[in-house]
Nucleic acid binder design. Sequence first.
DNA 1: GGAAGTTAATCAATCGTTTGATTAATTTTG
DNA 2: CAAAATTAATCAAACGATTGATTAACTTCC
Lengths: 208, 208
Amino acid sequence: MKTEKVDKRQAILEAAEKLFCETGYEGTSTRQIAKESGANMAMINYYFGSKEGVFVEIMNERIAGFTSQLKIINEDKISALEKLHKVIEGYVNRILNNTAFHKMMHRELSLTQRPEMYDKIKDAMSHNMQIIDRIITDGIEDGSFNKVDVRMVIATIMGTITNIVISPHKVMSCSNFDLNNPKDKKIIKDRAVAHLQDLTTVYLTTKR
Amino acid sequence: MKTEKVDKRQAILEAAEKLFCETGYEGTSTRQIAKESGANMAMINYYFGSKEGVFVEIMNERIAGFTSQLKIINEDKISALEKLHKVIEGYVNRILNNTAFHKMMHRELSLTQRPEMYDKIKDAMSHNMQIIDRIITDGIEDGSFNKVDVRMVIATIMGTITNIVISPHKVMSCSNFDLNNPKDKKIIKDRAVAHLQDLTTVYLTTKR
DNA sequence: GGAAGTTAATCAATCGTTTGATTAATTTTG
DNA sequence: CAAAATTAATCAAACGATTGATTAACTTCC
């Protein structure tokens, strides 16, 4: 069992994800995927049945790897604010470590097409939102948070992160930031976490 | 001679925008555009040179209609906070009145392809960001705003609105909201404006 | 030897674009 | 003014290229 034996199936998935992220689903041809992965075109249909099968498989794997992540935090015996800060940190890290996929997910979400994918993404997002919702709602009920529009606060947290990922990097700062540069990514991550934690602290806990 | 003379050029633009919004640029064929607009296929190339020419024209018209909007506010002799609140209200209204186009713009922005469009959208966004940046920076300098990460605050404002538009509506609230329903749209608009104005007020002006 | 993996060749369908011809409207000319 | 010339708009048909998918033969491996 040689380790240099490449798993064509996996190679196809990785090449396809890269190409889908860069040029979109419709903008990527099966021949491109084949060339990029080093596999023959027929292998795509052999393993996944169709081009869409590849896409569905990518989404399923990714989403499966995501939904299991945010759960544990809620068990800790820490304050609502600390929980929220942990969630923010986790969320920022996850998304900024998978910017390409996150872009692709949002692109797919904004299309009226492929309702199966839409529902799948919706469910995954919905689950994450429920976790954040619970933390904030609990904080409000036990009096440690102000009464706020919870769903809007969630939109702010998620929207801020998404905006950082999607918006042209050169717009983000005066100098030329690049999210593919690990050093720049670290800086952006820290700034985003600091900002969102500061923002939520002030907005949710300031007596007024 | 009946005066039902339709401007085919305009019909093509409108049909193309609708289709591009619904199924994406690559997902829309010139034949679809022709059928939807009632024009002959050749007219697309006759008027716009190419399929991409249609897309570029749509973007140019839209962006031209947008960039002229946020300017006047800055001339008013009002406080930085009031300026910011006006900008927020204008921004929310504009985007929620053009949700389909806004989705398409973001979709296109997340593609590495079509650099010409990317730059055009980037410039338009960059201009809006500069306006908001100036307001907040002025507020900080004259002491009415706290010292904050200005670019991150902008990302929060823009990201929140975008998130509301793009995120699945059914996730937004317990009941089934629909942005195409004028009554629901009004409600979402008001909630978004109220939330963002409250958020910025608290975060930027709370003494701490 | 036979199942699994892999290949080149090929399929019909669709893609964006171009063509040459035709009609309708406008301008030029005698 | 009216005939001739020019331009703009529109059309059906076809273009070559590319699409996703399939075939059938071949290789690899247990």
